[in-house]
Amino acid sequence: MTYRSFNRWLAGAALALAAGLGLAGSAAADDDMTFALISHAVPGDTFWDIERKGAETAARQLGADLIYAHHPAAGQQATLVQNVINQGVDGIALTLSHPDAMRGVIAKADAAGIPVIGLNSGLNEWQSTKVFAYIGQDPVVAGAAFGDRLNTTDAKHVLCVNHEQGNVSLARRCEGIEDTFDGKVSTLYVNGQNMTSVRSRLLAKLQQDPSIDYVATLGAPYAMTAVRAIRMSGRPVSLTTFDLNSRVISAIERGKIRWAVDQQPFLQGYLAIESLWLKATNGNVIGGGQAVLTGPSFVTAENVDQIAAFAKRGTR
């Protein structure tokens, strides 16, 4: 068995398994289109679950099949893309958090006549690759909007809590806040896969620097841990966050979190698959050469009621 045929066999086995578990939906008929969503998600990240639901919803509505695969390491993600090229899918949506590592496989897909769309990360790099469009939030724009909003409060010193050191778009959110916020911005790195350390390190930072009066977490699960850390510090620190989940929404309702910035992951996944379908069936190109932005949209005490119902079913 050659490597490639083994690969194909493996992909086939994986598909059969997915179909067996009821994840891939209805059995593929010959004329059905198949799209792939390949992300850099860390396993178990709630944010990516919503992104995937958006893509699945679009695929279902279009009567298409969706293959979802992810790996946080650049090389592995490129291998996943190569796999779906070998399978001959009709379009690929992929995240460009490691744009240089993706350049080669994107060119291969292009040569094979498979349209590729970028989503979620890679705002500054997508135009230099062969993806035909890009859907996402500009982390700098989101960070800047965050900073502008902080200027309307009495905030003087904001702590930006980054749960994944080395992730470009998370770092840019903090930089965006620095660009527009008039006060001081500090950064704290925590290990997102170990909640006790997230809380201990945040608490330590609050104890170490008494001038911090606002905390900005970069992911929803970490905001809930920050609520606890702030309470344990016994200090009047306000909490704000990027991204949403149902517990963040209820914390906004209870006034524990001032606001959350939503980049609408469902919309990203949904639009990416829709755009691939339109490109494949009608030659349409979305965005006119510019990125299609899905955020930032602010969730505050004023509008939280409308969004709560959607978050409860796991789509916001």
Binding site: V42, G44, N194, M195, P221, M224, R228, R247
Partner: peptide, 10 residues
Amino acid sequence: DYVTVQSGEG
């Protein structure tokens, strides 16, 4: 202590 658990932790 943390009420909900993310499946990728640990």
